[in-house]
Computed example of a mutant assay.
Amino acid sequence: MTDFALWPVVAGAAAFFAVGALWYGVLFGKAWQRAAGLSDEQAQSGNMALIFGLTFLFEMLIAMVLWHLIARTGAAPHVVMMMAVGFAVGVMIPAVGINYLYQRKSGLLFAIDAGHFILGMAAMGGVFLLFL
């Protein structure tokens, strides 16, 4: 396994993106919108192609970092999942939590977003297992 491989990174980012589409669309879209304090107009405003494109690029960056760590350590499958979910729980969620504390965001918004990170990273880790 090389330190960087395009297809696992793209597939992992796509899995994370798909989880986000379901999470913020079908499952928690309205609850998230209310918790974020966004009206329907605000939620639909902006350049959605740019927003989705940058979201995918950020998820690609996350996937590249995780794939690099997995490749460098030669992690076993169960460790891959521990790294993926651990990255969400140990790095991503605390970082968002710190920002939300200072921005006075609600606990519900934090819980919705934290759930997305955990499931998104688990999906990414699961996809990576297909490439090991």
Rank of each mutant, 00 (worst) to 15 (best):
L69P: 08
L61T: 15
V89W: 00
V9N: 03
D113M: 01
F58M: 12
M64W: 14
M1S: 02
R104G: 11
F17V: 02
L57S: 06
F117R: 01
A122G: 11
G126R: 11
F131S: 09
G74Y: 08
L22K: 04
V85L: 02
G12Y: 11
I93D: 00
A15T: 12
H78M: 15
Q42H: 03
A88H: 00
G29V: 01
E59M: 15
Y100L: 08
W23F: 06
Q33F: 03
Q44I: 08
D40N: 10
M83F: 15
A43L: 03
V96M: 12
M92N: 00
V127K: 04
V10T: 09
R72A: 14
R104M: 12
I51P: 01
Q42P: 04
L132D: 11
A49C: 04
A14N: 07
I62A: 15
A75V: 10
G20K: 03
H116Y: 14
G115W: 02
W7H: 04
A123G: 10
L132T: 12
M48E: 02
A71M: 09
F58V: 13
M60I: 14
A76G: 14
G29I: 01
A18S: 11
A35V: 13
M48G: 04
Q33P: 02
R34H: 05
L129N: 10
L57F: 10
G29D: 02
F117Y: 08
F56T: 02
I62V: 15
M64F: 14
V19E: 06
F117K: 00
I62D: 11
H78W: 15
W7Q: 06
L132S: 12
L38A: 06
G125D: 09
M82V: 13
M92R: 00
G115H: 03
A31G: 02
M83E: 13
M124L: 15
D3M: 09
F128V: 15
V9A: 08
A75G: 10
W67E: 06
R104T: 12
A71Y: 08
M81T: 04
P77I: 12
A63K: 06
M83D: 14
L61K: 12
T2N: 09
F28M: 07
L61G: 14
D3C: 12
I51Y: 10
T2C: 04
E41A: 13
A88F: 00
W7R: 05
V127A: 09
F128S: 10
A43W: 04
W32E: 02
V127G: 08
A95G: 05
M81V: 09
G46W: 01
W23S: 01
F131K: 04
F17C: 04
G90V: 00
H68V: 11
A14Y: 06
T55A: 11
F58A: 06
K105E: 11
A123R: 06
V79F: 13
S39F: 05
A114S: 01
W67I: 06
A14L: 14
G126I: 12
A63C: 11
W7N: 02
F128N: 13
L38S: 05
L38Y: 07
K30M: 03
I118P: 00
N47D: 10
N99W: 13
D40K: 10
L132E: 08
V80Q: 07
L38F: 07
F16A: 12
F128Y: 14
W7V: 09
A31M: 06
Q103G: 13
Q44N: 14
A63E: 09
A5G: 05
A14Q: 07
M60A: 13
A111Q: 08
V96S: 07
H78E: 15
